[in-house]
Write a protein that binds this DNA or RNA. Structure first.
Lengths: 192, 192
DNA sequence: TTTTTTTCTTAAACTATGTCAATGTTCAAC
DNA sequence: GTTGAACATTGACATAGTTTAAGAAAAAAA
């Protein structure tokens, strides 16, 4: 059950058996079905979730009720509303399973406990956060400097499986364009 | 010299005198004049820099030679190309002082040393990174869901001093629009 | 299977924003 | 102070992307 996650962690820090056991004892399994909400707008995010299997999206609903997908999480990545989770404030995002998924979740206070007991995990989290930050930076840069068509190519390359897994309008939302325009980009591309 | 930074750190972790001294011994002061480069494209970022005084910008030059400002750093914030700094790869960003500035810099390897010797700093860095990440998330959301005009209002609110400190075309670049269009937004606003 | 719902495509009209070029303004250097 | 460079404004035009609406295709439900 936990192999993938442990392997993921061991890319960053070295754990012995006892530490591994302690860590896994803090986790809880959660299975969600396609369409299930992991987090609704206004709730406080109590868990950080590691995706062991499946795929989820985090999205922001703006003042006009428009949805903007801000993150996809496939296998081997983490997802929560970090603002809400870190600062214990009501969430602006909502998180939904795009397909049936299996998660390993750690609760906010238990994570704090973990940091106290095994400070090495501070490092793990720091390193993961750094990579998160960097990858968000790349999104920002892409949004500022690439056209919609280029952004689509980037996403296709970065999430090759995603394209077949989820409806295209979600991808349109993620790259910040209307579904109709994405459709046009695709047909333009195909006819060349 | 180091008071502001130490105060900043003590918002996150508690340091005794010896730890404080050790930490400050790892820093180096650096003064830069307006227009000086802290980092050029292609160089590897060796330092993370804390802005004690002044103001800098980080920007990305795209394939067409267009500049896109991705971060402003005023007093009491950190700036470097984190991708380059963290992974020791050539930088895609360049960092320039917008006014005469004073920095406290920590070198990559010394930071690693610091983490080994005082693991508490892992926590500090993790917490700072979390906040960085969250604020980047806000940029992304703003870019995806707000009009140029709204983005300008947000920046005006978030960096009230900046508006008078630097040329407007830098702000236009930061919110992802042309300088001409920002000028129009402003005149439109003024005439109401 | 048939029906219903969701998703995808296409096209026309429209809007926000970009580009170019000319003019005016501010600011730093001499 | 004068000059030159960087910056800001304005207008005319171009374009990327949105909106609306309709129908086709695919997926889910019955």
């Amino acid at each position: 059950m936990h192999e993938l996650l442990i392997k993921h962690i061991s890319n960053y820090i070295r754990l012995d058996k006892e530490e591994t056991n302690y860590f896994t004892s803090l986790l809880r399994n959660r299975k969600v079905k396609k369409g299930d909400f992991l987090l609704r707008r206004g709730e406080t995010a109590r868990y950080d979730s590691y995706v062991d299997k499946g795929c989820l999206k985090a999205s922001f609903i703006d003042k006009n009720g428009e949805e903007h997908v801000v993150q996809f999480a496939e296998e081997n990545s983490w997802i929560t509303d970090y603002d809400s989770f870190t600062n214990s404030t009501p969430s602006n995002l909502e998180i939904v399973a795009l397909v049936d998924s299996e998660l390993l979740q750690i609760e906010h206070d238990r994570l704090a406990q973990l940091f106290e007991r095994i400070p090495k995990f501070e490092r793990f989290y720091r390193l993961v956060k750094e990579q998160h930050y960097i990858s968000l930076y790349c999104c920002l840069i892409s949004l500022l400097s690439n056209s919609a068509e280029e952004r689509y190519q980037v996403v296709k390359q970065k999430y090759p499986m995603l394209i077949n897994r989820i409806p295209q309008h979600q991808i349109a939302s993620f790259i910040g364009i209307s579904p109709e325009y994405l459709s046009r980009i695709r047909s333009r591309k195909a006819s060349l």
